[in-house]
């Protein structure tokens, strides 16, 4: 039994305590926007926020998360999918196959909340998610567009 706070909702989940948070989110809670890509925190497809920090959920056992910690998945990022980062992704038509993009977006939001004036160098060092289609150039453009718009990080 684990007590979790996911996208603002308090949940009781019946699951073995060593189950990775990723699989609890996907299989017990049923939110499949968070993806399995590697299981070893290499690719970032499973990125969620825990108290605002980008976290690779495949490598966090559910027992390591407390009921008080706020977990946010791609589904909970904004009520209507219109978070400024999501809007920038749509404007720049970033995704190709799209499988890695939930993780990309979650990593980006965490970066910009911590560092709303992220530079190209910051983006290069912080966004380490793998995209095999090769959307990196558009990811970078979209992030810089959000930075230029100044819509994140105020307050």
């Amino acid at each position: 039994m684990a007590k979790l706070n996911v996208n603002g909702k308090a949940l009781d989940v019946q699951v073995a305590e060593d189950t990775p948070l990723l699989w609890v989110i996907r299989e017990q809670i049923g939110l499949t926007g968070t993806k399995y890509g590697c299981g070893v925190a290499q690719c970032g497809a499973c990125t969620v926020h825990i108290d605002g920090v980008a976290t690779r959920s495949c490598s966090v056992p559910v027992s390591a998360v407390t009921a008080e910690q706020k977990i946010v998945t791609i589904e909970g990022l904004s009520p209507d999918g219109r978070h400024p980062v999501q809007q920038a992704w749509i404007k720049h038509d970033v995704p190709q196959c799209g499988f890695c993009q939930s993780g990309m977006i979650m990593a980006t939001v965490a970066l910009l909340q911590a560092n709303p004036k992220a530079t190209e160098a910051d983006i290069a060092s912080e966004i380490t998610n793998i995209c095999r289609c090769g959307t990196y150039a558009r990811v970078k453009t979209a992030i810089l567009d959000v930075v230029a718009g100044g819509t994140l990080g105020r307050g």
Binding site: R26, T32, G33, T73, I74, G81, I90, G98, S102
Partner: peptide, 20 residues
């Protein structure tokens, strides 16, 4: 613009791995 972008930005896109 592509026709299939929006659902790839909000977690709604269902891949084979996500089927229930």
């Amino acid at each position: 613009p592509r026709l299939d972008t929006v659902d790839k930005t909000n977690g709604k896109k269902i891949y084979g791995m996500d089927l229930k």
